[in-house]
């Protein structure tokens, strides 16, 4: 059973005779591929990334310290104007809230997905996956139809006699949080689902045999073992939320200004690419910093999970 889980389970296995001279440390070797082949397999992806992703990013980051004159003047301006720090803090806040909501709502769905078999499993998987295949723009407009003052939700509530006057739900933090959480939930559900799937059912049975009730079983077995999925999912959602652009622009009010909108303003309204590069640099540093911190936590989670 333990072959499904990764890492330490491979320790006991002898190295396969695939041309690898000596067994490698288990932390590096995930499968039984020789190193050369691994490099060959990821080379096309690396080449594409280098050409289409790293080169432009490096170029725009270079511009941020070289133009209009070499130095950190763009970054100094960013720090000296309260607008940019305010918006960065707001972006972190919205992304954090969005991550927490997605986790709270997504975890039960992942548990349900992992425990359900047959037709219902397909239905749940479809509910999680189909929105992923719909464009962000279309989903944002769907939220507008739902939440607008003369929209579906206000119509239903006034028909039911719950409200006498329509409520303004659109163009504010609540609408943006709701829509972003909905859009990002699959990214937290799927890693948790995958972590839950890899928990051996015998562990739960063993816990029951030892007298644990459902709550104790969840807290002591299921939850700790699903932590790698939780942290991977949260990391994905948080970092993706940092760069959200379309949804806050369509569903938010002026107060829901996020950092991507400021970058676009500099790039398209003011054509100040060096400064846009400086803001992007800060966003990139934040994302990387958070990813690295989370990665530590993720490794920690794995240690906990296998202890």
């Amino acid at each position: 059973m333990s072959a499904v889980s990764d890492g330490p389970a491979l320790d006991g296995l002898p190295a396969q005779s695939t041309g690898v001279a000596a067994p490698r440390p288990s932390g590096l070797l995930r499968g039984q591929l020789p190193g050369g082949l691994t490099v060959l397999l990821i080379a096309p992806l690396l080449a594409l990334l280098a050409f289409a992703f790293f080169a432009p990013i490096l170029r725009i980051l270079a511009a941020s310290v070289l133009e209009p004159r070499p130095g950190l003047s763009n970054y100094a301006r960013l720090l000296s104007q309260p607008l940019y720090m305010d918006v960065i803090i707001r972006t972190l806040w919205i992304s954090g809230a969005c991550t927490a909501l997605a986790l709270l709502l997504g975890y039960p769905v992942a548990v349900l997905m992992a425990r359900t078999r047959g037709g219902w499993a397909t239905v749940i998987a479809a509910c999680v996956l189909v929105p992923l295949w719909t464009s962000t723009l279309v989903r944002s407009y769907a939220w507008i139809l739902l939440l607008d003052r003369n929209g579906i939700l206000n119509g239903l509530m006034s028909k039911a006699g719950l409200i006498s006057q329509p409520i303004d739900m659109l163009y504010g933090n609540a609408a943006v949080l709701m829509a972003m959480t909905h859009m990002l939930m699959p990214f937290v559900i799927l890693p948790i689902y995958s972590a839950l799937q890899s928990i051996a059912p015998e562990l739960g049975q063993a816990a029951t045999n030892l007298g644990a009730g459902p709550v104790r079983r969840f807290w002591s077995v299921t939850l700790p073992l699903s932590l790698p999925g939780v942290s991977a999912g949260c990391l994905l959602v948080f970092v993706m939320a940092l760069g959200f652009y379309v949804t806050p622009a369509l569903l938010g009010g002026p107060k829901t200004l996020m950092i991507a909108t400021l970058i676009s303003q500099q790039a398209t309204e003011l054509l100040n690419w060096p400064f846009a590069g400086a803001i992007s640099g800060v966003l990139l540093a934040l994302s990387l910093g958070i990813a690295v911190t989370f990665k530590r936590w993720l490794d920690l989670g794995r240690v906990v999970a296998h202890d």
Partner: peptide
């Protein structure tokens, strides 16, 4: 004045 005015507008409208 474009950049300064837009910055001030953005700060005001998002405050």
């Amino acid at each position: 004045n474009r950049a300064q005015a837009l910055e001030r507008w953005t700060a005001w409208v998002s405050a």
